[in-house]
Design a binder for these strands. Structure first.
Lengths: 202, 202
DNA sequence: AGTATTTATTGACTTAGGTCAATGCAAGTG
DNA sequence: CACTTGCATTGACCTAAGTCAATAAATACT
């Protein structure tokens, strides 16, 4: 990863890559981009299969993934994992329900690969929303995206067979199959690992 | 329903009840409430089981339900209905995915009882958001609510058995059982009508 | 490199819930 | 009020997908 920083600000612990991620997300002047990036901390790399947030905790951070990927999942009372969301590099990552409400989450958040995150606290996040309209707009866009994503997920769960959900994923997001283990992918599609294995070989 | 209007504005086709609904939703001065209510039209009562929006159409309106109730649902390629959302009086009603994106919906919207709606066009709705910060805030709150609702729905679909979903509904929203037919309720819980009938008698 | 621990695959069997069909019941319409 | 149409219930049977178990293959660990 290139460690050049396009600004001259000292004590800015963000990289050029991170600035470009922010620029992808909001259109604003460089000063505001500075202000935003200054609120983020680059975390030390997190090993794969590390739990970032556990059931019962309040989600006090919002992340951007620089490299790697992560998921959020439920554990049923029978002990089964059910993955709701998988996010890759250059994407936001948080347990939005808990982040919004600041109430304990029922989900776990876990890295699926060695992952580098940029982190902002919930307090700073909401402070930035008041301060920078473009950031407020980003929050709104993210919320809309999250709504549309879940809307789609509900539709797929209730209208498609296991086989069809897998085929749709294969066509629309083939990188999921390349990067995510069969085991986790099965929990994402809400089918058993064995059934997924059988679907793949047909 | 009381048809008194607490303002002196002529040509204001909204009722006192409607004003109180808006006041429930946003905190603002009476002038802005006037401005908001003036953008809504009270529709002539709609008979039960009337389709308000069909698959393939773009959702160009946002509604408040004054009396009655309505649902949005998918029809699978096997011809089965799957209800995603049921809304009652004093609640917002729209197919948010299509309303946001202005792209054709895959859902149907239908009244479940004789229903009275207040309607605002998508254009006016977004115009109001620019004009009145409290309305913009309402949109954000609604989006957050909608997100949280779907988040919950996904959790229930993937972590609970049919029986448990029914028991949860019976405890948390008993009015659904009183007002919604077994048939529609079954599609809301994503179980067959026969199975729901059997669950109820145990 | 060699061992230990996951993960993937495959077969045999089970099950939650669905489908189909028949009957009784309630409700809307002329 | 009769009549039709749709809704709820129940029984008999079915099936998509899950579970359990045994290998095999891949990864991680020392």
């Amino acid at each position: 990863m290139v460690e050049t920083n396009s600004t001259l600000h000292l004590f800015n612990n963000t990289t050029g890559d991170f600035r470009s991620m922010i620029r992808d997300i909001i259109t604003s002047d460089e000063q505001k981009i500075d202000r935003i990036t200054s609120c983020f901390t680059k975390l030390t790399p997190i090993k794969r299969n590390t739990i970032i947030l556990a059931k019962g905790q309040v989600c006090k951070h919002f992340y951007f993934i620089e490299t790697g990927c992560a998921r959020t999942y439920y554990i049923t009372k029978e002990g089964q994992e059910k993955t709701r969301l998988i996010m890759f590099e250059r994407s936001p990552l948080t347990v939005l329900s808990s982040f919004i409400s600041q109430r304990p989450t029922v989900e776990y958040m876990e890295t699926l690969e060695d992952t580098v995150l940029y982190s902002i606290s919930q307090v700073d996040f909401f402070f930035l929303r008041k301060e920078i309209p473009e950031w407020d707009q980003f929050y709104l866009n993210m919320l809309e995206d999250a709504f549309l994503f879940q809307n789609q997920k509900i539709e797929e769960l209730v209208t498609l067979f296991a086989k069809e959900r897998y085929e749709k994923l294969r066509k629309e997001t083939p990188h999921f199959i390349q990067r995510i283990s069969n085991k986790v992918l099965a929990t994402y599609l809400d089918i058993s690992q064995e059934t997924l294995s059988r679907l793949k070989s047909k």
